[in-house]
């Protein structure tokens, strides 16, 4: 783990191993997309190589979530091209290789559902329209164990706390052992303890060789895992390179100063704040 994620030149380390492992997991070129007639992406390039952890950063409305939604196909591309695992999006069928964790919403369905039932839907790429089998059930148990929610499997999802709900959504994405994990603001509305739990879960997946594309508002406890940061501003890529560690995300172009936690004490030491 340390060789891959903790050294400063980790993103230099990736390309050689990445080309050996095959084509880029995500390759978005010149993406232009509109939402409700308003242009949100104006030519975004984004590459995620195998085993790489890429964070999408930027202010609210900069197009982070829309970028992710174009990758999973729920927002259509007006221009540009998208390849997943080296195949054009239109011809891509290997959905079992992709795990998606949407932005957590508090809106529950109108009918109760258990944790196990929700996580089981993550197994659909494997069994498709065929019946759910023993191996599928075992996979669900494994995913629930990995997020520490197996003992809550029979509980209703409506009664979970924010952090627990987020763990269920992650388990649902992990159930098929994906090669690419796409997460939209996984830390939003999750307290610091649960954030650490989520970071540990993610570390295990990264060690397994899973590539991760994350939308983040701040790096937080995930910082040591991230190989590369892509910063968006007004639908354009403003920065693509190593995550801004020493200076903190305050220095990023387009970052707005919203801090749910007061744990960024090291920023206080910057001259700008002291004067």
């Amino acid at each position: 783990m340390s060789a891959v994620i903790s050294t400063a030149d980790s993103d230099r380390l990736q390309p050689s191993s990445g080309e050996d492992a095959g084509p880029a997991v995500v390759s978005l070129r010149g993406a232009v997309a509109t939402v409700g007639g308003r242009p949100v992406l104006r030519g975004v390039d984004l590459t995620v190589r195998p085993g790489e952890v890429v964070a999408l950063l930027g202010a609210n409305g900069s197009g982070k979530s829309t970028t992710v939604k174009t990758v999973i196909g729920s927002v259509p591309l007006a221009q540009g091209s998208l390849e997943l695992f080296g195949r054009p999006r239109r011809k891509f069928r290997a959905w079992h290789r992709v795990g998606y964790v949407p932005q957590r919403t508090t809106a529950a369905g109108g009918v109760p559902a258990t944790v196990r039932e929700v996580v089981s839907t993550g197994r659909l790429p494997q069994h498709g329209l065929l019946p759910f089998r023993r191996t599928d059930r075992d996979a669900v148990d494994r995913a629930l164990t990995s997020v520490g929610m197996l003992d809550r499997a029979g509980d209703g999802v409506a009664n979970l706390s924010g952090g627990q709900h987020q763990r269920v959504l992650i388990a649902r994405a992990l159930v098929g052992r994906p090669d690419l994990l796409i997460m939209d603001e996984p830390m939003a509305g999750v307290d610091v303890d649960s954030q650490q739990v989520l970071a540990d879960i993610l570390r295990t997946e990264v060690e397994r060789g899973c590539a991760v594309l994350l939308v983040l508002h701040e790096l937080g406890p995930l910082e040591p895992l991230i190989d590369r940061a892509v910063v968006l501003r007004d639908g354009c890529v403003a920065h693509d390179g190593p995550p801004p560690r020493s200076v903190g995300q305050h220095a990023l172009p387009g970052h707005d100063h919203v801090h749910p936690h007061a744990d960024d004490h090291h920023h206080r030491t910057t001259p700008g704040l002291l004067t």
């Binding site: 196909g73 949407p102 559902a113 839907t121 993550g122 659909l124 759910f132």
Partner: peptide
Amino acid sequence: GLRRQLFAVCQDEEFARVTGL
């Protein structure tokens, strides 16, 4: 017969699309 599939679609349509349904 299609309970799991229809459940997934009604529970979280966006996620269901990413499962290839």
